[in-house]
């Protein structure tokens, strides 16, 4: 019996274990036949599974775009829901190939935490939500307030810095999961709840009376959210980075999911280079030359993904703001594809 059970355990280990990166991540992903993507456990607009396990969100679409660039099929991706505190360990251990989990790009994460950031798919900032009945108009009025915050995030540190800088105090209540944090705020345990502004809009939807809560105007931090990969794999880093830039360039050039097939016939040299009808840029990345075509075919351009998941086409109704293209007054700027 002992031997049988040991054998069983070993067998289960062998079957459950996925082949992780030791050579190049790209080769590994190709060999596995799918992309393993670290995502949020449940954040509307960014990464949220429904009861049937179908994932939606801006980050999720990013993962699909990478999968499409590699396989030409946006469905060849599997998601690993990660809590804030587990995400870097999961990336380091090779459990996920790429971490697209509304993760803030900071210097310590980009260096000592063993991750590499290259692109920003959402420029965010930390904000506060309070109950309307408190009649608070600004975060500076929150002196002495009890504030709910999620553990293991840059949010926790920004909050401290902001109150220290403004010489006001607060009482923290720190939860490990986002569900508990929102619930505690909603029940009245805390006067305010703080997280990235996009998250505030998402969490407000889940409160028992969304209309009774108001997001304060202050944005107290810079939160450039982007995909992270393991350090030391140049090739893979570039694929992840250029996936984002391809989506941006597509928006700039007006290439959409709907018209991408038509655009193949375009005479515009920029469009031709993007869609691979001219030049061999895809091969340079270790992919095929129609890599960007496949991305756009699968998830559309950046603007489409934005509107569908967090913008006007979603429940969140977040305006483009600083996430608009540079040509429209925003910060999203793609290096040229040439």
């Amino acid at each position: 019996m002992k031997i049988k059970i040991t054998g069983l355990v070993v067998g289960a280990v062998a079957v459950l274990a996925a082949n992780a990166a030791s050579a190049g991540t790209l080769e590994n992903v190709k060999q596995k036949g799918f992309l393993q993507c670290g995502s949020n456990t449940s954040l509307a607009g960014f990464g949220l599974p429904d009861a049937q396990g179908n994932w939606t969100g801006l980050d999720v679409d990013y993962c699909r775009a990478i999968a499409a660039a590699i396989f030409g099929d946006g469905t060849k991706v599997k998601f690993t829901p990660l809590a804030a505190k587990d995400r870097f360990t999961a990336l380091q251990s090779g459990e996920v190939d790429v971490l697209v989990r509304n993760t803030t790009w900071t210097i310590s994460r980009d260096t000592t935490n063993g991750a590499t950031f290259q692109a920003v798919n959402y420029y965010d900032g930390q904000g506060f939500i309070v109950r309307k009945s408190l009649n608070v108009k600004s975060a500076l009025e929150l002196n002495g307030a009890t504030i709910c915050v999620q553990q293991g995030t840059t949010t926790e540190l920004n909050l401290t810095d902001y109150f220290r800088a403004n010489k006001i105090t607060y009482k923290p209540v720190v939860f490990a999961g986002s569900d508990e944090t929102t619930k505690a705020y909603d029940s009245g345990r805390c006067d305010a709840f703080t997280t990235d502004a996009s998250g505030l809009f998402a969490e407000r939807l889940k409160m028992s009376k969304p209309e009774d809560n108001v997001v304060l105007p202050e944005i107290i931090s810079k939160e450039p959210l982007g995909p992270a990969v393991r350090q030391g794999d140049e090739k893979w880093t570039k694929i992840v980075m250029w996936t984002h830039y391809a989506m941006l360039t597509a928006e700039e050039l007006g290439v959409t999911k709907a018209n991408v097939d038509e655009m193949l016939k375009s005479t515009n040299p920029d469009v031709k280079r993007l869609l691979g009808t001219e030049g061999k840029f895809g091969e340079g990345l270790g992919l095929t030359n129609d890599w960007a075509y496949k991305i756009i075919k699968a998830v559309g351009n950046y603007g489409e993904a934005f509107e569908r998941n967090v913008g006007q086409g979603s429940q969140l109704k977040i305006a483009r703001g600083i996430n608009a293209l540079w040509s429209k007054g925003g910060l999203q700027y793609a290096p040229p594809i040439r």
Binding site: A84, K85, T112, G152, E156, L157, V174, A176
Partner: peptide, 8 residues
């Protein structure tokens, strides 16, 4: 919890 997350 917190310390592990900040220092990794």
């Amino acid at each position: 919890g917190t310390v592990l997350n900040q220092t990794n």
